[in-house]
Design a protein around this nucleic acid. Sequence first.
DNA 1: CGGCGCGTTGATTACTGTCAAACGGTGTGG
DNA 2: CCACACCGTTTGACAGTAATCAACGCGCCG
Lengths: 243, 243
Amino acid sequence: MNKDERSFLINMLERHDHMSDEERQAIIALPARMRSFASGEELVAEDSRPEEACLIVEGFAARAQYLANGKRQISAVHIPGDFVDLHSMLLKVMDHAVIAVGPCRAAFVPHINLRRLTETHPHLTRLLWHTTLVDAAIQRAWIVSLGRMSAEQQMGHLLCELYTRLRAVGVIEGDSFDFPPTQAMISDMLGMSTVYVNKTLANLRSTGFVEWRDRRVRIVDFDRLAEMCEFDPRYLNLWQEPR
Amino acid sequence: MNKDERSFLINMLERHDHMSDEERQAIIALPARMRSFASGEELVAEDSRPEEACLIVEGFAARAQYLANGKRQISAVHIPGDFVDLHSMLLKVMDHAVIAVGPCRAAFVPHINLRRLTETHPHLTRLLWHTTLVDAAIQRAWIVSLGRMSAEQQMGHLLCELYTRLRAVGVIEGDSFDFPPTQAMISDMLGMSTVYVNKTLANLRSTGFVEWRDRRVRIVDFDRLAEMCEFDPRYLNLWQEPR
DNA sequence: CGGCGCGTTGATTACTGTCAAACGGTGTGG
DNA sequence: CCACACCGTTTGACAGTAATCAACGCGCCG
């Protein structure tokens, strides 16, 4: 990893708790293999047993699971700084694939080095653990969204989540961000048909809170959007606290 | 915790990896406060900042989140041996409540003692981390279920998950188990209306794979049920492996 | 006995999926 | 340069799924 790439992970961890210089050095010392992927390409295969964990450096990725009838469900969207499959270090077998949502770049860090970190750095271990717990909290929010929210609320909630997380990483330009997935991919995130995604999107646009065309999203009125879909950013744990 | 209660946690951890005697002793040495709860009672409140983590010892509990319009979604069901809110040690603020599903008993273990364990026992730390990762894998399965499965498949999948987890804990009697939630609670697990839960249940009964009355579930033909709802137990990680 | 909680059923309404067609942009080949 | 195919988006009609409303049955307990 070069300086920029390492800094993503350090910033990601430091967003939740202060780190010592020694801890930063330990992160920087991690070896990493960089790779680029085209949209739709698979970063990690379902049912595989990875030897490395995959850190998104640029672009978007998603966790996807496939059903027998060819249907697909996406269970998370990942942004730069996310360790998409850190859990594979302990779970061993992937219960989902990781796919590129738009072109993306990722760093692959050997499990063995991460494991060594857990032997020597309890605080860093807790911080890495913490990132997987935030991940789980996001999944709970998706469950609530899928189970109990209207189509418009679901879509709004997804946008609020992404906007908030991307802003924390610092890649929001003004009130807009690039979001490359096709409506078919979005339908797999929201558990809807593609046609209904399109109609829901039209409804959402008509509220005036969001503009979304040519793979660029503009959040016109975040507060009202958040209110509409009951988005409360606390579950993202975007503050420092001793962990 | 008395011997039985401690052994639940040890067995739970040992199901995933071998533990040393010293590690077992460290678990046994954890202080714990026992409490009993009536059905529907709150073990842990949403938005609270717990000082203890809650381990289910007997009965069932669930994670629940509430929406402004009074709707509720349950994002996980917990059984004896589960650390329902271990994540609160690092996330600090609860993003969900924990409620009793039927009468249940729980052990509350101070965060400070668990944290101390993470300072001194890297392997135990990884095992505890691992339990939260299995948890997250279960949540992903729920997302797939909510997003892309028919009502009958969703209900079947829930039963397969519970049957498999309960059998691992050893509380399945023959092919049956007690499952106390009302249909209203189940509707909050599956994101359906109570009426539709009732009709779906009738459909499921008519397949003959499952009997379910008076809060007792009997899995008549697990294999065919599992096939119907594409249940594959691997994501539950019920095997030992160096972690 | 009457009230209450829970399960069950039927009728109606609303939401969401499927099918089909058309539109617009892009890249390729003639 | 245009014709064409391809991909993704958009729209309308229709079918199927699930929510809502309402009523009833049943067992339990005061």
